[in-house]
Design a protein around this nucleic acid. Structure first.
Length: 215
DNA sequence: ACATTAAGTGATT
DNA sequence: AATCACTTAATGT
């Protein structure tokens, strides 16, 4: 991709919130990356040196528990960044989470040093960073009480809705096994719950994919 | 045709 | 809600 196209893409995704100057700096110091499905952007334990700005696609943010179980925290969408990376980048600490691409993803990696200087230089950047943290905090709380208070069937519904939102279509290419993995439960349980949702007319099940009818 | 993978089922804890 | 053991069905080679 040439710089011309990159500028257009940046303009589309972040133009409404960043000033021209900042967009130029992003284009200049960031690294454009195009990733395919299921690539690990950042693993638990990695030291963060850059922070990602999502241009297109979606990124899953997961947390591994002590037993190696995986838990889906939330999705990043275009215009988002990983709030976790703020705290980690600045302190140059290890990541506590894992980021995996969900489908094809385009993003720009910004060196940690830049985001620091931009904080003072650009008010819009400052707003962006703080808003991201606030929004992510909200989602985080949601993730926590979905775990603590919601029944599995409700969590499953929320999961399906989230998923539909990030891929932008009601047809999901997901196996029961993968869902079970994301929700940290067993495949059998997922299959049974999905069956019930299908009976209720909320979804339609096919092999390796399903359709969400009711939101 | 056979092996592999995804999904369904009943019983047990 | 999890796990086991097993079946059935769809897909890939």
């Amino acid at each position: 991709m040439n710089s011309e196209e990159l500028n257009t893409l940046l303009e589309e995704t972040f133009g409404f919130m960043f000033e021209e100057e900042l967009l130029k700096e992003i284009a200049a110091s960031g690294t454009y990356q195009k990733l395919s499905h299921d690539e690990i952007l950042m693993d638990q334990g990695d030291v963060m040196t850059d922070m990602p700005l999502i241009l297109s696609g979606a990124v899953k943010i997961l947390r591994d528990d002590d037993d190696g179980h995986e838990l889906l925290l939330y999705f990043l969408e275009p215009g988002d960044t990983c709030a976790m990376s703020f705290s980690c980048c600045m302190a140059q600490k290890k990541s506590k989470i894992r980021a995996v691409t969900e489908g094809k993803v385009e993003l720009i990696m910004i060196p940690a040093t830049q985001m620091d200087t931009w904080l003072g230089k650009y008010p819009t950047w400052r707003t962006f960073v703080f808003d991201s943290i606030r929004i992510r905090m909200d989602e985080f709380i949601e993730a926590v009480d979905s775990l603590a208070f919601m029944q599995l069937d409700e969590r499953l519904l929320k999961y399906l809705r989230d998923r539909v939102k990030v891929v932008g279509e009601t047809d999901l290419k997901v196996t029961h096994q993968q869902i079970a993995y994301d929700l940290n439960t067993s495949r059998v349980v997922v299959s049974r719950l999905l069956k019930r949702l299908e009976k209720d007319g909320k979804i339609k099940i096919g092999r390796s994919h399903l359709q969400v009818l009711e939101m």
